[in-house]
Structure formats: structure tokens, C-alpha cells
Amino acid sequence: MRRLVAPDLVLVYAFLVLMGVVTLIPFYWLAISSFKPASDIVSDPSLIPARLTLENYVYALTETPVPRFLLNTAVIAVGTLLIGLPVTSMAAFAFARYHFRGRDVLFGLLLASLAIPDYVTLIPSFVVARLLGLVNTPFAVIIPLAAAVLPLFLLRQYLKQLPEELFDAARIDGAGEFRLYWQIALPLIRPGLGAAGLLMFLTAWNAYLLPLVMVRTRDNLPISLGLQYFYSSVAAASGTDRSVWGPITVGATLSVVPLIVCLILMQRQFIAGLTSGAVKQ
């Protein structure tokens, strides 16, 4: 009976592997396609390719703007993280650890703003970016994404769980409020910081609508739009032009890599350090 609920390791493995296979197949197909001769990508959609080659990578990285697109995306994502994580965690700290007038209403309004879909805020966003002279700079994308409500919400959830005694004790020892945030709260919510950072990085990496209206020149496009740019040419050729599917599969495969690196970093830096029960207080 006990085993039924907490299944033994074999069952856990079976479940995890099965789920893994289901999730992995499309990615495997993408990755393997990027190594197929460009003419085979569409005409031979099989999972076990007849021929493998590096020609798509050579072509995409040397003769197309794919490296440039990836660089632009990296700038946006890293910039968002660098500005966004401090800013949202500080706000989350305030919402979680202090009592102040209008706190709950303010937080409710923040959450309510999520209920308005991006599409209708697009024109106002463009107007604001233009007023501030940000159009066609990475900041037009980075800054709006840095004030992200969902990561703030997630961080607040973690911060709320910390025992108040911890902070009181520190205060009595003479610690300033910023030190409470920086030296006590943040280290204790490292899994939360990792998860929020991942969420932020992912959102920025895949951002599509904002760059669409903010970016004015092809050289500043992020990879999400860059792939679309190639895809439009695919549409033109309806699937076979070698100059198209090669860069798309290569670009899509390569654009996954930084996100995976980000996830692994998060695992190492944020989650792993905690398993020793550091949070117990």
C-alpha cells in the first residue's frame, strides 16, 4: 500500500523516462534535421537520417545573419536578467516583508495587469518607447521586460515563507534594511531566484512582439524574429529552398543551447547549494 503511493524507484524511472522520450522526440527531430543535407530536411522527415553533414552550420554561421541574431538575443536576455532580477527581487522583498499602506491593493493591481494581453498594449508600448527615444535600441525590449510581474510574484512567494524572527534578530544586531534583503533574504531563496531568473531569461529569449515593433533594422533582430524572417522565405519556397531550412533548423537548435546552459547554471548555482537544508530555521 505504501509502495503504491510512493512508487519504488523503478516506477519513478519508468515514468520519468517515458515522459522524457515524449518530450525529447520533437527536439531530437529538430537537432538531427540541422545535420541533414538541406535538401533532405523537408523531403526526408525521418528520425534516422540517411546522411549527416555540417554544411548547414557552416552556411548558417558564415553566410547568414544567424550569429548576429543570436548575439542580439543574448544581449536582450542578459540585459533583462541584469536589470530585472535586482529590481523585481527588491520589490518582491518589499511586498513580502513589510507592511505599508496600499500594499495589497498595489500588488493586486500588478497581478491584474497580467490579464491584459500583450497585443493591445503594443501600441501604447511603442508610443512610450518612442517618447523615451528607445526605438531600435535593445533597451526598448530590455526595460519593459525587466519590470516583469510574474518573476516578482514568484519571488514574493518564496520571501513570504521566511520566518520573521530571522529578520528581527538581524535588526537587533544592527543590520540595515538593505542588508536584510541582500545578505539574509536573497541567499535563503536561491531556488526562487533561480526559478525567477530562468523565467525572466526565457521570456526575454523568446520575446517576439516587442522586438517586432521596436526593432527597425534587420541587423538588430533577435533570433525569434530572425527565424520568422527565414520562415517567410520558406513560405515563398514552400519548404525546399536550401538557403532557408538550413538556417532555420540551425538557428532553432542553437537558440536552445543558451537556455539549457541557463538551466544548468541555475541548477548548479541556485538549487544545488541548498540541499543541505540551509533554509531550515
Binding site: 518530450t23 520533437p26 527536439f27 529538430l30 529569449w205 527565424l227 538557428g251 532553432a252 537556455l259 539549457i260
Partner: peptide, 12 residues
């Protein structure tokens, strides 16, 4: 592995 799908471009 589980994280991979969300990282994939929707085009693909």
C-alpha cells in the same frame, strides 16, 4: 530534457 520543449521555437 523536460525543459527542452519550451525552449524550442514555435516555428519548428
Amino acid at each position: 530534457v523536460y525543459f527542452l520543449p519550451i525552449t524550442m521555437s514555435l516555428i519548428v
